[in-house]
Amino acid sequence: MKAGVIVFPGSNCDRDVAVALEAISGQAPTMVWHADSQLPDLDLIVLPGGFSYGDYLRCGAMSAKSPIMREVINRANEGVAVLGICNGFQVLTEAGLLPGALMRNRDLNFICRDVLLRVEDCASRFTLNYEDEQTIRIPIAHHDGNYFADADTLARIEGEGQVLFRYVDEDGQPTPKANPNGSLNNIAGIVNENGNVLGMMPHPERMIEDALGGCDGRPMFESLMETLSER
C-alpha cells in the first residue's frame, strides 16, 4: 500500500498517523507538503489531524484551498482512497468532498477522551476487519466536531448508508448522553457516495497498541492495507 500524508502548516497528527501506517503496513508513507501541486502515485491519501492554518477563518477552510487540495480532489474523484481524521475531516467538508459541516462542540469546550463508536457498515474498504455493529473505543480530541447537515442531506447520507461510525453508549446505543459534541444522529464519521472518501472526528491512529490504551484503531489500517494492496 502506497500511502501519502498531506502536511499543512499547523498539522500536528501527521507524524502520529505516519507512525501508525508504518507500524501496520511496514511501509513509511510519503509526506506531502501542502504547497506542492503534484501527488506521487498513491493508494491512500491521509489528511491528518491538527490545527491547519491555526483553524483561523473556519477549521479546514484555508487548507481546503491550498494547492495540493486540487490534486487530492482529482484523485478522490478518480476513486483513490482518502482518509480525513479530525482536522482532515473538516478539510474534506470544506473542500466539498464530503457533505455537511463540523461546528463548535455543543458544550463549547475542547474535548479529549476515549469514546465508544459503533461500526455501522463493515463492508467498506475502511472497516472490513471490524464486525458489523461492533463497538470500538477510539479517542477524540477536538473543539469543532459537531456534525451538521441539512435535513435532506442527512436523510440522503443515512439512506445511502454513508454513516460509517456513530457515537454510542456501553450498550451500543446512540443516546444523547453518548454524544460528546452534539453531532446530528450521533455521527462520528461518514463516507462519500462512492465510499472511497472517509472523514471521521475520532483518531484511530491513537489506538494502535496496548501501551496507548488499546488497539481498536488497528483494524481500520489493516482493512485499508488488505484492500489496497490487492490493487
Binding site: R15, D16, G49, N109, I111, C112
Partner: peptide, 12 residues
Amino acid sequence: EQYDHMVMGDTI
C-alpha cells in the same frame, strides 16, 4: 479533557 493529552502518540 480540555487538554489534548494524547497527541504525539507516546502518552502511556
